[in-house]
Structures are given as C-alpha cells and as structure tokens.
C-alpha cells in the first residue's frame, strides 16, 4: 500500500512549545484514517500542517506530485464566518475554484454539479438561502457539498461531526464511506471511538507525539489510549530546548 501523505519528523510549535512533536507517520492511500487523541493533542494542528496552513518548525509533509493539487480541507466550524452574506449555492460553487478561479464564470454545468452535490448531502432547495440562515448541521452538509465538488483525492476533515445530530452524522458518514469506495484518501479528526471502529480502518493516535499508528483495532487498544490520556495538557514553562538527538522514545 503506497502512502498518500508522509509525515517526516513533523514538529509544529506555538510560542516555541510543540503542539505536534516529532511525528513520523504514513497515511495510506485510498483508506480512511482517523486521527484520535485527547483535547490539546495537536490533532487539528497536524491536519493544518498536512493542508499547509501552519508553518512547520521541523520536518516536512510529503505529498506525491500527482495529488498535490487534489487536496481538500474541511475546517472546524469556528474557522468560518457564517454570518457572511453569501448564498449556499455560491458557497458550494467555490468547490470548483480550481477550474473557474478568481475570474472565470460558473457555467450551467458547474451550477448543475453544485445542485447535484447539494442534493447528495440533503440540501435540495437550499440554493438561494443565505449562509447565515443555516443550522450547524445544514452548514456542515453545505461544506461537504463543497468538498464533493472539489473532487479531491486527499480529503482532510477536522472534527466534522462536532455538535451535529445523529441523522446528519449518519448521512455525512455515508459520504465518507462513498469516498472510501472511490479509493480516495480521507483523514478525519474524531473523538467518538465507536465511529472510528465502525468506519475507519486505519488510525493515528496522537498525544502531541505519535502514540501509535496502524489498523484501528491495533492502534486504539486500552493500553495505548491510557498512554495518550496521560499526556500533560499544560505547557511546561521551564521546558528545556529540544535537541532531536537526545529525544527520549
């Protein structure tokens, strides 16, 4: 199995304190990978590093040439200004950015695809609605519709089911399963271990450092989860400078 993404000794810091610390891992291609770990474990930061949204202090993220332009990232809901006056259709159409860019017109074919994507996520008839009128669940469906339009090979989802009801979660998980069947690579930050076990064959367990990676049932063992939970959440203000050569395992 080849890697869709390779993390080589990735360290991301906030204020010199590592949020993600010397993480080496491979994200297998065409598989759904869950990123699991306690709050503050650096899951979202790791995802942002994969999407190229944060500066990597050390190491690198390797993405094969062919899929570099085929990456889509779903932010946490708080990263989007939902009060902005834009219609749902316009927002979904942004998924066609790579083809229409800043100046191209969205043709009838693009609009048709957008409407189909909205139907696929259960937002039929929402085209003209302003974004601000959507509920959290509907908004998440709209973001998924945009991702459908992006037609990405690597799909990064940051806590997509937070504050989302069961029915919407089930619908969106069905989309994830469809991406899996299409042999797309999905990396998803999740808290619900049941969801991970039933939908994600592969998992990364993170507690700032990588605790374990591999098939989900081998990764999410009670012993590993205990080790992850033991991570100190607070920063050590007196921490010494990290010299990679001396890194304890």
């Amino acid at each position: 199995m080849s890697a869709a993404l390779r993390l080589v000794d990735v360290t991301v810091t906030y204020d010199r304190h590592p949020a993600v610390h010397h993480v080496c891992a491979e994200i297998p291609e065409g598989v759904c990978t869950a990123v699991v770990g306690p709050n503050g474990a650096g899951k979202s930061t790791l995802l942002k590093a994969m999407a190229g949204l944060v500066r990597i202090a050390r190491g690198r993220v390797e993405i094969p040439e062919r899929s570099q332009d085929k990456l889509a990232y779903l932010p946490q809901q708080s990263d989007v200004d939902r009060s902005f006056p834009i219609s749902v259709l316009d927002m979904v159409l942004l998924g066609r950015w790579r083809d229409i860019g800043a100046f191209g017109a969205a043709g009838p074919a693009d609009i048709d695809r957008a409407i189909h994507a909205m139907e696929a996520v259960g937002l039929h008839g929402f085209e003209r609605r302003p974004l601000a009128t959507l509920s959290a669940g509907q908004f998440q469906r709209a973001l998924f519709a945009r991702m459908l339009l992006q037609d990405a090979e690597i799909i990064l989802l940051d806590e997509p089911f937070n504050a989302i009801d069961m029915r919407t979660t089930a619908d969106l998980l069905a989309l994830v399963r469809r991406w899996h069947e299409d042999k797309r690579t999905v990396v998803c930050v999740l808290h619900d271990l049941e969801q991970v076990r039933s939908h994600f064959p592969h998992a990364l367990l993170l507690a700032r450092e990588l605790i374990a990676a591999g098939p989900a049932e081998e990764t999410l063992t009670a012993a590993n989860l205990l080790r992850a939970r033991a991570m100190a959440e607070s920063w050590d203000e007196t921490a010494a400078i990290c010299h990679p050569g001396e890194m304890a395992a």
Partner: peptide
C-alpha cells in the same frame, strides 16, 4: 472574508 483558510488550502 468568510473562510480565510479555503484559498490557503488550495495553495492560493
């Protein structure tokens, strides 16, 4: 304005 990370994730 409404989704600052979107363009960055596309490499724009």
């Amino acid at each position: 304005c409404f989704n600052p990370g979107f363009l960055a994730a596309l490499g724009v």
